[in-house]
Design a protein around this nucleic acid. Structure first.
Length: 438
RNA sequence: GCCCCCUUCGUCUAUCGGCUAGGACAUCAGGUUCUCAUCCUGGAAAGAGGGGUUCGACUCCCCUAGGGGGUGCCA
């Protein structure tokens, strides 16, 4: 019998990383086994399950490349079926009605009272419990609506789910669910409970701990493949020290018995590293497309510049695409912004205007304006002043780029070209003398 | 309270009885007297505690401690 798994989130408008990780594991398992990955939208909370919330969910899945194999199932459409099953359980004496307080009657499912309940979890191993430690539970509320346990199991039966892979906050529910499967005369699926993602205090990771929703990572400029890879490594490892994997490798290597059963802390530093790693590994044309699109969005044009030379410098330095316009705007416009701290530290010193003008004059006289010649000029100036090369480099860097970080200065100067460099050096020197804002 | 689960460097993890306990992130030092980044080299850094089984235990068993989850009308 072929594998069928499902991701069954309740759409709330945000998709939590712990939740999407469960989707990732389900998806990889299905792809590895050649089975089906299904999506069931548990939209029974009509307050929160708005069309927009469902759209957000679908969009997050598409962004991460989590494609599913059959049309999505909407749980709210199955309510009649859930209630029919409850009626059947009632008729067969497997459930009973009870009234509490002034409200109507709810339906309660009978749990076994003796013996031992157990199941073999594919991640956690055998989990057992004495029947006397379980309790009957409500399957239909007194307002007539089905409870999660009932709806979840009935839908799993109807969708012929073979493996339930979910967060380990559901471990205890599994005893209830298994009894429900038995009561319906349906085959019991295999279970795999994934450890939770926790914060520095070991508590479930929430929005209070930083970005917790897929949409936030997307907005902050993370690549979907980087987030996917990072989340996979929270609770799973290849066993051979490889960490950065292609989607194909993940599918080939993924098995549930390599999943860990203890909670994992969310470490944003490693995600940031992973994101940079993915950007660096991108083929140049992919990087270029994103690079140009970010520039254009910021109103900058890449016409008439050595774009490839600039990208040679920028690709290894890009941690997030979102920082692209700000980190290299000076290559594309003379109206670049100055970092106030850099100005304070490198330009607001005695003799800087003279230094910049001197450099501009010497550079203007160069026939060949390249790595070597631009370097030699500043080296000679540093020596003449007895201050060394560093004292020349920093003011020039801030003057021509507005920033204190970036490509090597001489690479930067060569890319900008002699005329732009000289003009900028003179303009900054003038502004400094006249006390004008930069 | 009761029930279930978890416990290797700061963090993510490898190890399925032989370990000088490996890798990655982060961190420190050097290569690099122009920054940042990349890349390379090297360093520091771990088996919660106590029993037991065994020639041998991080690995198996028990206890304790700590953490997490669940505990009849949330999902």
């Amino acid at each position: 019998m072929s594998v069928r798994v499902r991701f069954a989130p309740s759409p709330t408008g945000n998709v939590h990383i712990g939740n999407i990780r469960a989707a990732i594991f389900n998806w990889l398992f299905a792809r590895h086994e050649g089975g089906a990955f299904l999506l069931r939208v548990e939209d029974t909370d009509r307050e929160r399950s708005t069309p927009e919330a469902i759209q957000t969910l679908l969009s997050c899945m598409a962004w991460l490349g989590l494609d599913y194999d059959e049309p999505e199932v909407y749980q709210s459409r199955n309510t009649a079926r859930h209630l029919a099953v409850a009626e059947d359980l009632l008729a067969r004496g497997l459930a009973y009605r009870e009234a509490k307080g002034g409200g109507g009657e709810c339906v309660i499912f009978r749990m076994p009272t003796e013996g031992r309940l157990e199941f073999a979890d594919l991640v956690k191993g055998v989990i057992r419990k004495k029947a006397e430690d379980t309790q009957d539970f409500v399957i239909v509320r007194s307002d007539g609506t089905p409870v999660f346990h009932l709806a979840n199991v009935v839908d799993d039966v109807d969708m012929a789910i073979t493996h339930v892979i979910r967060g380990d906050d559901h471990v205890e529910n599994t005893f209830k669910h298994i009894e429900l499967f038995k009561a319906m005369g349906a085959p019991i699926p295999h279970y795999a409970h994934l450890p939770m993602i926790v914060n520095n205090q070991g508590k479930p990771y929430s929005k209070r701990d930083g970005a917790a929703f897929v949409g936030e990572f997307r907005e902050q400029g993370y690549l979907p493949d980087a987030l996917f890879n990072f989340l996979l490594l929270l609770g799973w490892a290849t066993g051979d020290d490889r960490e950065v994997l292609t989607r194909e490798e993940m599918i080939r290597l993924f098995t549930l018995d390599r999943c860990k059963s203890s909670a994992a802390r969310f470490d944003i530093k490693k995600l940031i590293w992973m994101n940079g790693e993915y950007i660096r590994r991108q083929p140049r044309e992919v990087y270029a497309a994103e690079f140009v699109s970010r520039l254009n969005a910021a109103g900058l044009s890449a016409d008439g510049v050595d774009l490839d030379g600039i990208m040679d410098q920028m690709q290894v330095r890009t941690k997030f695409y979102s920082e692209i316009p700000a980190s290299c705007a000076y290559f594309f416009t003379d109206a670049y912004a100055f970092d106030p701290k850099g100005v304070e530290k490198r330009l607001k010193a005695d003799g800087v205007p003279e230094l910049l003008e001197d450099a501009a004059e010497r550079y203007a006289a160069l026939d060949v304006f390249d790595l070597q010649t631009t370097h030699d000029v500043l080296a000679a100036m540093g020596e003449a002043r007895g201050t060394g090369l560093g004292a020349m480099v920093h003011p020039v860097r801030v003057a021509v780029s507005g920033l204190t970080e970036g490509p090597g200065l001489f690479e930067m100067l060569a890319l900008l070209g002699r005329d732009r460099v000289c003009a900028r050096l003179r303009a900054v020197a003038r502004a400094l003398r006249d006390g004008l804002p930069l």
